[in-house]
Design a protein around this nucleic acid. Sequence first.
DNA 1: TTTTTGTTACAATATATTTAGAACAGAATG
DNA 2: CATTCTGTTCTAAATATATTGTAACAAAAA
Lengths: 126, 126
Amino acid sequence: MQIQIEPTSEIPIYTQLANQLIELIAKSELQPHAALPSVRSLAADLGVNMHTVNKAYHELHHKGIISVIPKSGAVVNPLPEKSSEAARQRVCDTLHPLIAEALVYGMTRDEILSLASSLISEFTEE
Amino acid sequence: MQIQIEPTSEIPIYTQLANQLIELIAKSELQPHAALPSVRSLAADLGVNMHTVNKAYHELHHKGIISVIPKSGAVVNPLPEKSSEAARQRVCDTLHPLIAEALVYGMTRDEILSLASSLISEFTEE
DNA sequence: TTTTTGTTACAATATATTTAGAACAGAATG
DNA sequence: CATTCTGTTCTAAATATATTGTAACAAAAA
Protein backbone atom coordinates (compact mmCIF):
# COMPACT_ATOMS: atom_id res chain seq x y z
CA MET A 1 0.00 0.00 0.00
CA GLN A 2 2.07 2.90 -1.33
CA ILE A 3 0.71 5.94 0.47
CA GLN A 4 2.58 9.09 1.38
CA ILE A 5 1.27 11.51 4.00
CA GLU A 6 2.69 15.00 4.32
CA PRO A 7 2.07 16.06 7.92
CA THR A 8 2.85 19.71 7.18
CA SER A 9 0.43 20.01 4.26
CA GLU A 10 -2.54 22.36 4.57
CA ILE A 11 -4.65 19.44 3.35
CA PRO A 12 -5.98 17.42 6.32
CA ILE A 13 -4.36 14.02 6.76
CA TYR A 14 -7.67 12.19 6.41
CA THR A 15 -8.30 13.96 3.10
CA GLN A 16 -4.83 13.14 1.81
CA LEU A 17 -5.43 9.52 2.72
CA ALA A 18 -8.92 9.38 1.18
CA ASN A 19 -7.62 10.97 -2.03
CA GLN A 20 -4.74 8.53 -2.36
CA LEU A 21 -7.02 5.57 -1.75
CA ILE A 22 -9.35 6.86 -4.48
CA GLU A 23 -6.38 7.15 -6.80
CA LEU A 24 -5.29 3.58 -6.05
CA ILE A 25 -8.81 2.40 -6.85
CA ALA A 26 -8.91 4.47 -10.04
CA LYS A 27 -5.63 2.86 -11.13
CA SER A 28 -7.03 -0.59 -10.27
CA GLU A 29 -4.19 -1.09 -7.82
CA LEU A 30 -7.00 -1.62 -5.36
CA GLN A 31 -9.59 -3.78 -7.08
CA PRO A 32 -13.26 -4.30 -6.31
CA HIS A 33 -13.89 -6.48 -3.23
CA ALA A 34 -10.30 -6.00 -2.10
CA ALA A 35 -10.03 -5.60 1.65
CA LEU A 36 -8.49 -2.40 2.93
CA PRO A 37 -6.00 -2.60 5.79
CA SER A 38 -7.48 -2.37 9.25
CA VAL A 39 -7.61 1.13 10.64
CA ARG A 40 -5.09 0.16 13.31
CA SER A 41 -2.51 -1.37 10.99
CA LEU A 42 -2.72 1.40 8.38
CA ALA A 43 -2.50 4.02 11.11
CA ALA A 44 0.63 2.31 12.42
CA ASP A 45 2.13 2.14 8.92
CA LEU A 46 1.49 5.82 8.27
CA GLY A 47 2.41 6.99 11.75
CA VAL A 48 -0.98 8.59 12.35
CA ASN A 49 -3.84 7.96 14.71
CA MET A 50 -6.40 5.21 14.28
CA HIS A 51 -9.23 7.75 14.30
CA THR A 52 -7.69 9.67 11.43
CA VAL A 53 -7.69 6.56 9.23
CA ASN A 54 -11.20 5.75 10.40
CA LYS A 55 -12.33 9.20 9.33
CA ALA A 56 -10.87 8.70 5.86
CA TYR A 57 -12.59 5.33 5.51
CA HIS A 58 -15.94 6.79 6.48
CA GLU A 59 -15.53 9.62 4.02
CA LEU A 60 -15.05 7.03 1.26
CA HIS A 61 -18.00 5.08 2.61
CA HIS A 62 -20.15 8.20 2.53
CA LYS A 63 -19.18 8.69 -1.11
CA GLY A 64 -20.17 5.10 -1.85
CA ILE A 65 -16.64 4.09 -2.84
CA ILE A 66 -16.04 1.49 -0.13
CA SER A 67 -18.18 -0.52 2.25
CA VAL A 68 -17.38 -0.51 5.95
CA ILE A 69 -18.56 -3.73 7.57
CA PRO A 70 -18.93 -3.26 11.34
CA LYS A 71 -16.43 -5.19 13.42
CA SER A 72 -14.98 -6.72 10.30
CA GLY A 73 -13.29 -4.34 7.92
CA ALA A 74 -13.59 -2.26 4.79
CA VAL A 75 -13.74 -3.46 1.19
CA VAL A 76 -13.64 -1.69 -2.14
CA ASN A 77 -16.99 -1.46 -3.89
CA PRO A 78 -17.36 -2.50 -7.53
CA LEU A 79 -17.22 0.43 -9.92
CA PRO A 80 -20.80 1.29 -10.91
CA GLU A 81 -21.55 0.71 -14.57
CA LYS A 82 -23.40 3.99 -14.66
CA SER A 83 -22.45 6.97 -12.55
CA SER A 84 -25.17 8.12 -10.18
CA GLU A 85 -26.65 11.58 -10.43
CA ALA A 86 -25.40 12.36 -6.93
CA ALA A 87 -21.87 11.40 -7.92
CA ARG A 88 -21.94 13.53 -11.06
CA GLN A 89 -23.28 16.43 -9.02
CA ARG A 90 -20.42 16.10 -6.56
CA VAL A 91 -17.87 16.14 -9.36
CA CYS A 92 -19.61 19.09 -10.99
CA ASP A 93 -19.67 21.11 -7.78
CA THR A 94 -15.93 20.72 -7.34
CA LEU A 95 -15.09 21.16 -10.99
CA HIS A 96 -17.13 24.34 -11.41
CA PRO A 97 -14.93 26.71 -9.37
CA LEU A 98 -11.79 25.00 -10.61
CA ILE A 99 -12.71 25.63 -14.25
CA ALA A 100 -13.35 29.27 -13.43
CA GLU A 101 -9.94 29.53 -11.78
CA ALA A 102 -8.21 27.92 -14.75
CA LEU A 103 -9.86 30.38 -17.14
CA VAL A 104 -8.85 33.33 -14.99
CA TYR A 105 -5.29 32.02 -15.04
CA GLY A 106 -5.43 32.43 -18.81
CA MET A 107 -5.74 28.76 -19.68
CA THR A 108 -7.57 28.10 -22.93
CA ARG A 109 -10.37 25.61 -23.44
CA ASP A 110 -7.96 23.28 -25.20
CA GLU A 111 -5.36 23.55 -22.48
CA ILE A 112 -7.90 22.65 -19.83
CA LEU A 113 -9.40 19.77 -21.79
CA SER A 114 -6.05 18.29 -22.72
CA LEU A 115 -4.88 18.55 -19.11
CA ALA A 116 -8.00 16.68 -18.05
CA SER A 117 -7.50 14.15 -20.82
CA SER A 118 -3.92 13.44 -19.83
CA LEU A 119 -4.89 13.06 -16.17
CA ILE A 120 -7.58 10.57 -17.17
CA SER A 121 -5.01 8.63 -19.19
CA GLU A 122 -2.71 8.56 -16.19
CA PHE A 123 -5.30 6.50 -14.35
CA THR A 124 -6.70 4.38 -17.14
CA GLU A 125 -3.51 3.49 -18.98
CA GLU A 126 -1.23 2.43 -16.18
CA MET B 1 -22.30 42.32 -7.04
CA GLN B 2 -24.43 39.15 -7.03
CA ILE B 3 -22.84 36.97 -4.37
CA GLN B 4 -24.56 34.42 -2.20
CA ILE B 5 -22.97 33.11 0.99
CA GLU B 6 -24.29 30.01 2.69
CA PRO B 7 -23.33 30.32 6.36
CA THR B 8 -24.10 26.66 7.09
CA SER B 9 -21.93 25.29 4.27
CA GLU B 10 -18.92 23.20 5.17
CA ILE B 11 -16.96 25.43 2.79
CA PRO B 12 -15.44 28.37 4.68
CA ILE B 13 -17.07 31.73 3.97
CA TYR B 14 -13.84 33.26 2.68
CA THR B 15 -13.46 30.37 0.23
CA GLN B 16 -17.05 30.71 -0.96
CA LEU B 17 -16.45 34.39 -1.52
CA ALA B 18 -13.13 33.90 -3.30
CA ASN B 19 -14.66 31.25 -5.56
CA GLN B 20 -17.60 33.43 -6.51
CA LEU B 21 -15.35 36.37 -7.26
CA ILE B 22 -13.26 34.13 -9.50
CA GLU B 23 -16.41 33.04 -11.29
CA LEU B 24 -17.48 36.65 -11.81
CA ILE B 25 -14.09 37.40 -13.31
CA ALA B 26 -14.24 34.29 -15.50
CA LYS B 27 -17.63 35.43 -16.81
CA SER B 28 -16.21 38.94 -17.42
CA GLU B 29 -18.82 40.37 -15.10
CA LEU B 30 -15.82 41.71 -13.26
CA GLN B 31 -13.44 43.04 -15.88
CA PRO B 32 -9.71 43.76 -15.70
CA HIS B 33 -8.86 46.92 -13.74
CA ALA B 34 -12.33 46.96 -12.20
CA ALA B 35 -12.25 47.98 -8.55
CA LEU B 36 -13.60 45.51 -6.04
CA PRO B 37 -15.83 46.81 -3.25
CA SER B 38 -14.04 47.86 -0.10
CA VAL B 39 -13.73 45.10 2.47
CA ARG B 40 -16.02 47.04 4.79
CA SER B 41 -18.81 47.63 2.31
CA LEU B 42 -18.80 44.09 0.93
CA ALA B 43 -18.72 42.68 4.45
CA ALA B 44 -21.76 44.79 5.30
CA ASP B 45 -23.57 43.67 2.14
CA LEU B 46 -22.92 40.00 2.85
CA GLY B 47 -23.48 40.23 6.59
CA VAL B 48 -20.05 38.91 7.43
CA ASN B 49 -17.01 40.34 9.14
CA MET B 50 -14.56 42.68 7.46
CA HIS B 51 -11.68 40.32 8.18
CA THR B 52 -13.42 37.48 6.39
CA VAL B 53 -13.66 39.53 3.19
CA ASN B 54 -10.08 40.66 3.65
CA LYS B 55 -8.99 37.03 3.86
CA ALA B 56 -10.77 36.23 0.61
CA TYR B 57 -9.15 39.20 -1.14
CA HIS B 58 -5.70 38.15 0.00
CA GLU B 59 -6.28 34.62 -1.19
CA LEU B 60 -7.06 36.02 -4.65
CA HIS B 61 -4.04 38.28 -4.40
CA HIS B 62 -1.85 35.31 -3.51
CA LYS B 63 -3.13 33.52 -6.60
CA GLY B 64 -2.27 36.56 -8.73
CA ILE B 65 -5.89 37.21 -9.68
CA ILE B 66 -6.30 40.63 -8.10
CA SER B 67 -3.99 43.35 -6.83
CA VAL B 68 -4.44 44.74 -3.35
CA ILE B 69 -3.16 48.30 -3.16
CA PRO B 70 -2.44 49.26 0.44
CA LYS B 71 -4.75 51.88 1.89
CA SER B 72 -6.52 52.18 -1.43
CA GLY B 73 -8.39 49.10 -2.59
CA ALA B 74 -8.34 45.99 -4.73
CA VAL B 75 -8.55 45.76 -8.50
CA VAL B 76 -8.92 42.87 -10.92
CA ASN B 77 -5.74 41.95 -12.75
CA PRO B 78 -5.72 41.56 -16.54
CA LEU B 79 -6.02 37.95 -17.63
CA PRO B 80 -2.54 36.72 -18.54
CA GLU B 81 -2.12 35.90 -22.23
CA LYS B 82 -0.25 32.79 -21.26
CA SER B 83 -0.95 30.82 -18.10
CA SER B 84 2.00 30.58 -15.73
CA GLU B 85 3.51 27.26 -14.84
CA ALA B 86 2.58 27.83 -11.19
CA ALA B 87 -1.04 28.42 -12.14
CA ARG B 88 -1.19 25.30 -14.29
CA GLN B 89 0.36 23.31 -11.45
CA ARG B 90 -2.27 24.57 -9.01
CA VAL B 91 -5.06 23.55 -11.37
CA CYS B 92 -3.42 20.18 -11.96
CA ASP B 93 -3.03 19.48 -8.24
CA THR B 94 -6.73 20.06 -7.64
CA LEU B 95 -7.88 18.32 -10.79
CA HIS B 96 -5.84 15.19 -10.18
CA PRO B 97 -7.80 13.76 -7.23
CA LEU B 98 -11.09 14.95 -8.73
CA ILE B 99 -10.47 13.01 -11.95
CA ALA B 100 -9.70 9.91 -9.91
CA GLU B 101 -12.94 10.35 -7.99
CA ALA B 102 -14.97 10.78 -11.17
CA LEU B 103 -13.49 7.59 -12.61
CA VAL B 104 -14.24 5.66 -9.44
CA TYR B 105 -17.82 6.91 -9.66
CA GLY B 106 -18.01 5.14 -12.99
CA MET B 107 -17.84 8.22 -15.19
CA THR B 108 -16.31 7.62 -18.59
CA ARG B 109 -13.62 9.68 -20.25
CA ASP B 110 -16.21 11.26 -22.52
CA GLU B 111 -18.57 12.04 -19.66
CA ILE B 112 -15.80 13.81 -17.77
CA LEU B 113 -14.54 15.73 -20.78
CA SER B 114 -17.99 16.85 -21.89
CA LEU B 115 -18.82 17.95 -18.34
CA ALA B 116 -15.64 20.01 -18.33
CA SER B 117 -16.43 21.36 -21.77
CA SER B 118 -19.92 22.45 -20.81
CA LEU B 119 -18.64 24.12 -17.66
CA ILE B 120 -16.10 26.03 -19.73
CA SER B 121 -18.87 27.13 -22.09
CA GLU B 122 -20.88 28.35 -19.14
CA PHE B 123 -18.17 30.89 -18.42
CA THR B 124 -17.06 31.81 -21.91
CA GLU B 125 -20.43 32.02 -23.65
CA GLU B 126 -22.49 34.07 -21.22
C1' DT C 1 -10.28 -19.28 23.11
C1' DT C 2 -7.54 -15.75 21.64
C1' DT C 3 -6.81 -12.15 18.60
C1' DT C 4 -8.41 -8.70 15.66
C1' DT C 5 -12.01 -5.86 14.20
C1' DG C 6 -14.74 -1.48 14.01
C1' DT C 7 -17.26 1.27 17.40
C1' DT C 8 -17.89 4.33 21.02
C1' DA C 9 -16.73 7.47 24.67
C1' DC C 10 -14.05 10.94 27.04
C1' DA C 11 -10.27 13.94 27.02
C1' DA C 12 -6.62 16.90 25.53
C1' DT C 13 -4.10 19.79 22.28
C1' DA C 14 -3.52 22.44 18.19
C1' DT C 15 -5.08 24.83 14.33
C1' DA C 16 -8.58 27.20 11.54
C1' DT C 17 -12.55 30.03 11.15
C1' DT C 18 -15.27 33.90 12.35
C1' DT C 19 -16.47 37.74 14.83
C1' DA C 20 -15.59 42.12 17.46
C1' DG C 21 -13.44 46.47 18.67
C1' DA C 22 -10.05 49.68 18.24
C1' DA C 23 -6.34 52.41 16.46
C1' DC C 24 -3.23 53.92 12.69
C1' DA C 25 -1.55 56.04 8.53
C1' DG C 26 -2.04 56.61 3.70
C1' DA C 27 -5.38 57.54 -0.14
C1' DA C 28 -9.33 59.74 -1.98
C1' DT C 29 -12.65 63.38 -1.93
C1' DG C 30 -14.69 67.65 -1.08
C1' DC D 1 -6.73 71.55 4.00
C1' DA D 2 -10.15 68.79 6.44
C1' DT D 3 -13.00 64.94 6.22
C1' DT D 4 -13.95 60.51 4.93
C1' DC D 5 -12.62 56.10 3.35
C1' DT D 6 -9.14 52.76 2.75
C1' DG D 7 -6.42 48.58 3.99
C1' DT D 8 -3.46 47.28 7.95
C1' DT D 9 -2.49 45.80 12.40
C1' DC D 10 -3.40 44.35 17.04
C1' DT D 11 -5.74 42.06 20.80
C1' DA D 12 -9.36 39.26 22.08
C1' DA D 13 -12.80 35.86 22.13
C1' DA D 14 -15.85 32.14 20.58
C1' DT D 15 -16.59 28.31 17.80
C1' DA D 16 -15.39 24.55 14.82
C1' DT D 17 -12.19 21.30 12.93
C1' DA D 18 -8.29 18.21 13.10
C1' DT D 19 -5.36 15.12 15.50
C1' DT D 20 -3.86 12.36 19.04
C1' DG D 21 -4.36 9.33 23.21
C1' DT D 22 -6.45 5.92 26.11
C1' DA D 23 -9.82 2.79 27.18
C1' DA D 24 -13.51 -0.32 26.92
C1' DC D 25 -16.96 -3.04 24.30
C1' DA D 26 -19.01 -6.54 21.40
C1' DA D 27 -18.82 -8.92 17.13
C1' DA D 28 -15.95 -11.19 13.65
C1' DA D 29 -12.00 -13.92 12.53
C1' DA D 30 -8.30 -16.97 13.52
